[in-house]
Amino acid sequence: MNTRDLVLVALFTAIIVVLGLVPPITLGFIPVPITAQSMGVMLAGCIIGAKRGALAFLLLVLLVAIGLPVLSGGRGGLAVLAGPSGGFIFGWAVAAFVTGLVAERFVKPATSEARQFAGFFLASVLGGIVVLYGIGIPWLSAVTGTPLTAAATGSLVFIPGDLLKAAIATLAARAVYAGYPLLPARV
């Protein structure tokens, strides 16, 4: 890993921390405010790619573990990792990796704008929703004893908000890709 990659990873982790400090987004039609930080997985994978995106989140988990309040709402420390949603936090790195893999596969400089949008959206949904829930829900079920089906059904409430996040992340990722492309190409 060269120094530039290392710096990109660290800067992206810092951006994710800042997204947790800014006020949450409130939308008229969804009752729960959306924290900008929760889009971090999708943004990291789509913007700096699989490997660097995953490393950015490993670095974030390290910051949480050593006791810095870097998560939205000033949360942090080992207590958050020990809680029921710990699986989602540990799953972020894998989710960012998968998002990056899909984005690298489908988005290339030569592809048309519409297909770039589609590629980023697909990557965000597969990595940021399917993979993340695929790790977080079984973990939650194992830790709390809630039956898996019940945990999965309950999580459906969050899907509309997540799709909206994927849409916002897609627009932002495509804007960055047009202005300052960093996504490695993959054949």
């Binding site: 710096v7 800067l11 987004i25 932002a172």
Partner: peptide
């Protein structure tokens, strides 16, 4: 003040510094 119109510029402006910072480290 919408995140949609802020996140893009925020990320581009920040990541553009990467080369300078990497050069300074090396």
């Amino acid at each position: 003040v919408r995140p949609l119109t802020i996140i893009g510029p925020l990320i581009i402006l920040t990541l553009k510094d990467a080369d300078t910072i990497a050069a300074a480290i090396d």
